[in-house]
Each structure stands twice: as C-alpha cells, then as structure tokens.
Amino acid sequence: MKFFKFFLIVIILFPLSSVNSEGNDKRNEITKNLRCLICQGQSVYDSDSEFANSLKIVVDKKLQEGLSEDQIYEYFKTKYGEWILYDPGLNKNTYILWLLPILIFLIGGAIIYKSFIVKK
C-alpha cells in the first residue's frame, strides 16, 4: 500500500519535471498539434504556407504572454473551430472515438478469456 502511494505521487509529480524545457521546443510541440488550414493534410509545424508561418509567430507571442499550452489550444479553437486541433479532447463529440478502441480491447480480452483459456 505504501508502495502504491509512492507510485501515485511519482505519477502526479512527473509532469512537472518537463516544464523547464526551452521555449522553442514548446512552440514546436504546440504547432505539431495544430492543423494548417491552407495545406489541410499538414500540421502547422510541417507547413511553410504564409498562414502557418504567421501562426508560429502568434504561438511564440502567446507563450511570451505566459499562456499555457491548453490556453493556446483553446485560443485557436475559438478562432478556427475544433478542426484545427489534431488532438481532439474528450467531449460529447469524441466519446466514441476515444472509448471504442478501449472497449474493443476489453471485449476482445473477455472473448479470449472465456472461450479459450482453461485455468488449471
């Protein structure tokens, strides 16, 4: 039980350790998760369109203003709609998207367990 608690604390604390990274990295990480509206198959990070270049500058500005990653995503979501985010959050539109694979995994496991395996 003690071990379990310790484990939990480690998990909760560990995202903190990744905060002190360089600004550029943060910018890249964010723009990788934004979809470019000009070349619609690419992320803003990968794209070199005028729009994407400006958007990178905006991300830099927002980071300097001290906005968090989530706030920046939220900002672009209100400007351009949910489509711009490559990482769709868990909401009523995406319950099936996120949970169906997990459900399939669980059902698959149950089928294998029930029909094939004898414990002895």
């Binding site: 509206l37 000009i38 005028e50 729009f51 400006s54 958007l55 500058i57 500005k61 400007k79």
Partner: peptide, 13 residues
C-alpha cells in the same frame, strides 16, 4: 506585416 493580426481575426488567407 507578419500576418499575426489576421490570425487574431480568425482569417487564414
């Protein structure tokens, strides 16, 4: 000049 105001407006081209 750098296209950032257009983004504030939600424009992309």
């Amino acid at each position: 000049l750098d296209g950032t105001i257009a983004i504030e407006w939600g424009a992309y081209g």
